[in-house]
Design a protein around this nucleic acid. Sequence first.
DNA 1: CTGATTTCTTAACAAATGTTATCAGGCACT
DNA 2: AGTGCCTGATAACATTTGTTAAGAAATCAG
Lengths: 193, 193
Amino acid sequence: MRKHKPEEPYENRLPGGNPEWEPFSHFFNREEIPAKTLLLREGEIARKAFYIEKGCLRVWFNREGREITFQFFFEGQGVSSVESFRTNTPSLFNIETIEPSVIHVIAKNDFEHILSHSEAIRRTIEQHTLERLIYYQRLFLSHIKNSPQERYEALLKDHPAILHRVPQHYIASYLGITPVHLSRIRNSLLKRK
Amino acid sequence: MRKHKPEEPYENRLPGGNPEWEPFSHFFNREEIPAKTLLLREGEIARKAFYIEKGCLRVWFNREGREITFQFFFEGQGVSSVESFRTNTPSLFNIETIEPSVIHVIAKNDFEHILSHSEAIRRTIEQHTLERLIYYQRLFLSHIKNSPQERYEALLKDHPAILHRVPQHYIASYLGITPVHLSRIRNSLLKRK
DNA sequence: CTGATTTCTTAACAAATGTTATCAGGCACT
DNA sequence: AGTGCCTGATAACATTTGTTAAGAAATCAG
């Protein structure tokens, strides 16, 4: 059912997706990383941030022996455990590759060096923080406002590509339900047509 | 059962809770506001931000005719519909007083004026944005990680004052459950002792 | 290609939570 | 004191979602 397409075309963007990063590109280390590899472990303090050239990541934590995935990241996105990276506290979650991925890695002190040398990038990061805030706010609201079925339908409508690229049990835990229940929802939607 | 204590002592702090705001205090307008008054309406674009000298607010939205409360604010806190205030988009929720309150109000353009004239306050606000991000992240995680009963017990342990000050049906919707279910949880906890 | 592993579906049953309705106490207002 | 409103508790019943287990389908490793 699910189509795995690591070979689909993509843009090879600069870290940050913007030419303002050009002067600082030497701070980034390009790495090719296999699938299912941890980039950050729950409980560790994040000392690196990542930019995804190719591939996808998921963010998850352990709840009583089970993995709960709550975010996905794809090509062109910058990723870090924001609260850990910026406040030097243990990360609340793991960051892991889903597919084989090409990641640009930057160390925390280099990142701070850039921030203190580029007003433009400082603003970009500030904007990024605001966007993350809004993202989490919406994510939270969608969980208390909408049913799992409504969230699934929204995902289907707004980000159909994710469904074709990410294993369904990750999607289920992202929606806050079990794989069994997601399967039921999909089934009932099929019958309704 | 619930004790309403609008007369309890409090600190009369400066807006922002910090002397760096002192030079800009004339931008704030002190207002005494009755209970159950809307400061911002769902769908409106936020053109003001608030600092609470005294009283408390709740943040809620309408879901199919029912009010869902998902945040409380108390003395000493700065409040706005961040995403609306900073991005000029319609607010996703209402901000309303619970008790009679004393609020310092600042207009958006004055706020921006301050930001462009004080590096220290710009940093404070940036820090505030990060804290809000982390707050929403944690709130979201607590909803997918913990049961309503666990969330109630955490609230009981970490913020018992809220429970004595805010009507129980607001608490219930904050926990993501119905007042009936919260009552059941409280009952089962009592029996357990 | 083939066997092993992972992923998805389905069913039966269990647990958690919602819905509706009723009642009782507290509180504000007269 | 009496009335009405708001709040919280409780019960009976309905619905949603989880759990466990089994098998089918897809994918992966050699």
